[in-house]
Computed example of a mutant assay.
Amino acid sequence: MGRDGVWRKSSRSGGEGNCVEVAGFADAVGVRDTKDRQGPALSFDPTAWSRFVGAVRAGRLGDQE
Rank of each mutant, 00 (worst) to 15 (best):
S50I: 02
Q38R: 11
G59R: 13
S10Q: 07
R32P: 00
R12G: 00
G2T: 11
E21N: 09
V29F: 05
E16T: 12
F52M: 05
K9G: 09
G54S: 15
L42A: 08
Q38C: 07
G15Q: 12
G54T: 12
D36N: 07
S13R: 13
R3V: 04
T47P: 02
R37C: 12
G30F: 03
G5L: 01
G39K: 07
G24I: 02
S10P: 02
G54K: 12
R12V: 00
Q64A: 12
M1G: 05
G62S: 01
R32S: 01
W49I: 02
A55P: 03
R57S: 06
E65C: 13
C19S: 13
G62Y: 09
R32W: 05
Q38I: 12
G15A: 13
L61D: 01
M1T: 07
V22A: 09
L42E: 01
K35N: 07
R32K: 07
R3D: 14
E21G: 08
G24P: 01
R32I: 08
G59D: 07
A23I: 05
A58R: 14
K9F: 04
G54N: 11
R51H: 14
D33L: 04
R60P: 02
F52N: 04
G59K: 12
L42F: 09
D45A: 14
D33P: 04
Q38W: 09
A23F: 02
F44A: 03
Q64C: 08
E16F: 01
F25R: 00
D33C: 08
S13W: 10
R12W: 10
A26K: 10
D33M: 11
M1L: 05
S11Q: 03
K35T: 11
G54Q: 13
A41T: 14
P40K: 14
A48I: 10
P40N: 14
T34V: 11
L61N: 06
V31F: 07
L61R: 05
V22P: 00
R37T: 15
T47S: 10
A58Q: 11
G15F: 02
V20C: 04
R32M: 02
L42C: 03
A23N: 05
T34C: 10
E21H: 08
A41K: 03
A58D: 10
G39D: 06
K9Q: 11
D63G: 03
A55Q: 14
F52P: 01
G14T: 15
F25M: 05
G24H: 10
G15R: 11
E16R: 11
K35G: 06
A23L: 05
G2E: 06
P46H: 06
K9S: 13
S10A: 08
G59A: 10
S11N: 09
R37K: 11
